[in-house]
Nucleic acid binder design. Sequence first.
DNA 1: CCCACTTACTTCAACCTTAAAATATTTTTA
DNA 2: TAAAAATATTTTAAGGTTGAAGTAAGTGGG
Lengths: 151, 151
Amino acid sequence: MSEDLASKERLRLWLRFLKASRAIEAQIRDNLRREFASTLPRFDVMAALSRYSDGLKMSQLSEVLRVSNGNVTGIVDRLVEDGILVRVAVPNDRRAWLVRLTERGEKEFAAQAEAHENWINEMLAEFGPKDAANIAIRLEHLEKSLREKTL
Amino acid sequence: MSEDLASKERLRLWLRFLKASRAIEAQIRDNLRREFASTLPRFDVMAALSRYSDGLKMSQLSEVLRVSNGNVTGIVDRLVEDGILVRVAVPNDRRAWLVRLTERGEKEFAAQAEAHENWINEMLAEFGPKDAANIAIRLEHLEKSLREKTL
DNA sequence: CCCACTTACTTCAACCTTAAAATATTTTTA
DNA sequence: TAAAAATATTTTAAGGTTGAAGTAAGTGGG
């Protein structure tokens, strides 16, 4: 089983994949910290909410981000403290909260998102638009097949 | 700047890339937890040390893994408690420690590494050996160019 | 109506992570 | 050689992450 050559090549692929992914992520974290005094998880929450202007319930947010409920609680707590988000009560269900970007949060996210796109554009400069599109589609397939396997 | 189409394609590529990478990583973490009651950072430390049978100094370990010094301290502490690693004093330098796998640590790592290779092999089954090799090389370039940019 | 079940969210304990400060030791320099 | 600088590591504070346990509120069958 472990002398299978294809298996070794796939392992090698994964190790490269992980290394590249971590390098890019580290750069983004660093930039967010230095230029916006923020973090990637905070950015992720803002990005998710920017796509839902009506807001999301806590559970929907953790679903979208694929992280645990308790995790979202902590990040949202801090973003609310900072005036980036608001929690709004949901009519007819006193258990649930709707979370939305504040006006200030929207402005802040717009600035961060533009910078973020530029960082990526520079880091992935060696990929032409066609290459980028092709690989993106391939990765989409991979991610989908993984999701099916994990059902 | 942000209406550049290539930029949008690269951003899309990065988001797919990150999603796939996180999905694979999550699966590995889950498997490590369930089958070995362990974690990915612990696995990474063991993997690094398995390539250096003479051991590594703490600073070398954090260099190889590209994580902070303090981080390595905590993970190694726990692995030492569990009998997976030993800290050995370095002659002529009382500041430094050499960290090595114990015999038990080596056996434990061998078992985990084999399982790990099999998990990857299944998850990346849709990549043939040639594809895997090609993409791996491409990612190696990417990672190298990122490292140069960050110098 | 009420008791069991489910749902929405928070809290908790343990671990991971970082940057910055602290400690201890070695090396360099004045 | 004493003081300063550099090196090796740990500690600390703040945040992120999870699974599991806890709290509160809605839902439904008997």
